[in-house]
Amino acid sequence: MSKLTVSPSPHIKSSQTTNKIMWAVVISLIPAGIAGVYIFGISSLNVIAFSILSCIFTEALFLKLRNKDPKAVLDGSAVLTGLLLAYNLPPQTPFWIPIVGGMISIALGKQIFGGLGQNIFNPALVGRAFLQISWPVYMTAWKNPRWWPDAISGATPLAKKASVHFSYMDLFLGNRPGSLGEVCVIALLIGVAFLLVTKIISLRVPLSYIGTVGIITWVFGKEGFFKGDFIFNILAGGIILGAFFMATDYVTSPLTKKGKIVFGIGCGVLTAIIRLRGGYPEGVCYSILFMNAAVPIIDRFTKTKKYGFIKK
């Protein structure tokens, strides 16, 4: 694991390594899933199951259509996409929402580009944004934690007219409505620790991302100039999930060190702007997709340094 090399595309990795990385990320996401099921009840388990099954099925279908090795379906990438998609959905949806989402993720997000390692956008986020745009009603029907008196609520902490006050502890432990896998920050951080120890992710993207959001929401927050509640903004919403698990995706993030930082800052700026001024309460998904589109250009403009040329 310590001998990972990250290099400019095309990616030629042995399947062994790719498999290991994919499954390790899947494992690191398990605590957050358990927390989600515990907080929102059994309906979340349905969402996760439908999403993963749909992704695996679509992946298998495409592999068969394009005459590729069907065993590749078990490389973990389809499972990971399904899991991440489910974590970005509300904990209770009509059963077909995660199914359609999974199909879109794999078909439009990944296989149309040629499959593993070749996609431009993060597949799970492609699926999630498609669902958000197509069925906004189902995608904003948030469920309250099981122990709250009323089951269905209208608003996440980030909603523009949030009426309930959330303490930092609520946000940290996940005592709030929100997407299935994003609510329990402590569970996500356990997974992050695992990924850091195994050196699967580096901190460049997540830290520059979270730091930028923190600074902007502190300076321009709605509480006043230089008085914004940046801890709230980092804990609420999907930044932890997005920054550590989706913005760090090898295929859809820059390969150079400088590029990674540019990418993280870009995501952060966009997320903060959408949150403060945009029409949507949350901007993590769109920001990462936007920056995914910029990755080839970022790589292009940051790669010269690699060869040790000195600009004259």
């Binding site: 439009l108 498609f130 745009i133 197509s134 906004p136 189902y138």
Partner: peptide, 15 residues
């Protein structure tokens, strides 16, 4: 049938 709003909007046309 829950209409797929995506197709009503700009990205749907391109798709």
């Amino acid at each position: 049938f829950d209409p797929i709003l995506y197709f009503m909007l700009a990205p749907g046309a391109l798709l």
